[in-house]
Amino acid sequence: MASAFERIAEIIAENSEVKRDAITPDSHVINDLGIDSLDFLDIVFAIDKAFGIKVPVESWTQEVNAGTAPPEKYFVMKNLATRVEELVAAKAG
C-alpha cells in the first residue's frame, strides 16, 4: 500500500496543475506548490474520500491564524502526511 505521502502527492497532481515530480516531502502546499484555495478544497475532498477521514482544515487554519501552530505543521507535505496518518489511526481507534 502506498504511503500517505505518496497518495497525497498523487491527489495533488490529479487535482491541480502541479506535476507529481515537483512534489517533495519538504514542499509547502501553498507557498511552494502554489495551490490556490479552490484547488485545495478539491484536494481535501479527495483526501477525505481516499482515507475515509475528515481533515479538520478549519481548525488547522484557525490555529495558524491565531499563531498557536506554525503553518508548516499542517501545510508542508511530510507533516501533512503525518497529520493524515494520525487521523486515520485515530479513526481506527
Partner: peptide
C-alpha cells in the same frame, strides 16, 4: 455527498 471541514459536496 460529503460533509467536510468548512465545505460540503
Amino acid at each position: 455527498v460529503h460533509d467536510g471541514s468548512g465545505y460540503a459536496v
